[in-house]
Simulated scan of single mutants.
Amino acid sequence: MTTEDPARKESGPLLFLAVTFATAWAAWGVAIALGQPAMSFPTVIPYLVGAFGPMFGAIAVRLRRAARRRSAPAHAVRFPLTGLLWTPVLLVVAAGTVVGGALLAQQLGGPPVSLPAALTLLETSGGPIAFAAVMLVVGPLSEEFGWRGTMHPRLRARMGLLPAGLLLGVVWSVWHLPLFFVAGTVQNAFGLLTPSGLVYLVSVVPMAVLAACGYERAGVLGAVVVHFGANATMSLVGVSELLPQALVVGAQAVAALVLLAVHRDRREKASAAHGPVREQPAPALR
Results as ranks from 00 to 15, higher is better:
residue 188 N to M: 01
residue 270 A to R: 14
residue 69 R to T: 12
residue 13 P to L: 10
residue 236 L to Q: 06
residue 79 F to Y: 05
residue 58 A to L: 09
residue 200 Y to V: 09
residue 46 P to E: 00
residue 193 L to Y: 06
residue 244 P to Y: 06
residue 126 G to M: 11
residue 270 A to E: 11
residue 164 A to L: 02
residue 72 A to C: 05
residue 70 R to D: 11
residue 128 P to Y: 13
residue 182 V to A: 00
residue 35 G to T: 13
residue 92 V to H: 03
residue 180 F to Q: 01
residue 76 A to M: 14
residue 205 V to E: 06
residue 58 A to Q: 07
residue 202 V to F: 13
residue 256 A to I: 12
residue 126 G to V: 15
residue 94 A to N: 03
residue 146 G to A: 13
residue 43 T to A: 09
residue 219 G to Q: 02
residue 115 L to R: 11
residue 205 V to C: 08
residue 264 R to I: 11
residue 150 T to D: 06
residue 192 L to I: 09
residue 141 L to K: 02
residue 13 P to R: 13
residue 134 V to D: 06
residue 173 S to P: 12
residue 148 R to D: 04
residue 111 P to A: 15
residue 149 G to S: 07
residue 63 L to M: 05
residue 28 W to E: 00
residue 5 D to G: 02
residue 152 H to R: 00
residue 150 T to S: 07
residue 107 Q to V: 10
residue 89 V to D: 07
residue 283 P to H: 15
residue 53 G to Y: 12
residue 105 A to M: 01
residue 20 T to C: 13
residue 91 L to H: 07
residue 35 G to W: 07
residue 90 L to V: 07
residue 56 F to A: 12
residue 124 T to N: 11
residue 248 V to H: 02
residue 255 A to F: 01
residue 48 L to Y: 09
residue 172 W to Q: 03
residue 206 P to C: 14
residue 159 M to V: 11
residue 190 F to G: 10
residue 96 G to K: 05
residue 274 H to G: 08
residue 38 A to Y: 04
residue 10 E to M: 05
residue 68 R to K: 11
residue 142 S to I: 13
residue 205 V to K: 07
residue 183 A to V: 15
residue 42 P to C: 01
residue 115 L to G: 10
residue 66 A to Q: 13
residue 52 F to K: 00
residue 100 G to A: 12
residue 280 Q to Y: 04
residue 100 G to F: 03
residue 208 A to I: 12
residue 105 A to V: 02
residue 269 K to Y: 03
residue 239 V to S: 05
residue 5 D to N: 12
residue 248 V to N: 03
residue 33 A to V: 15
residue 55 M to L: 14
residue 33 A to S: 15
residue 9 K to G: 10
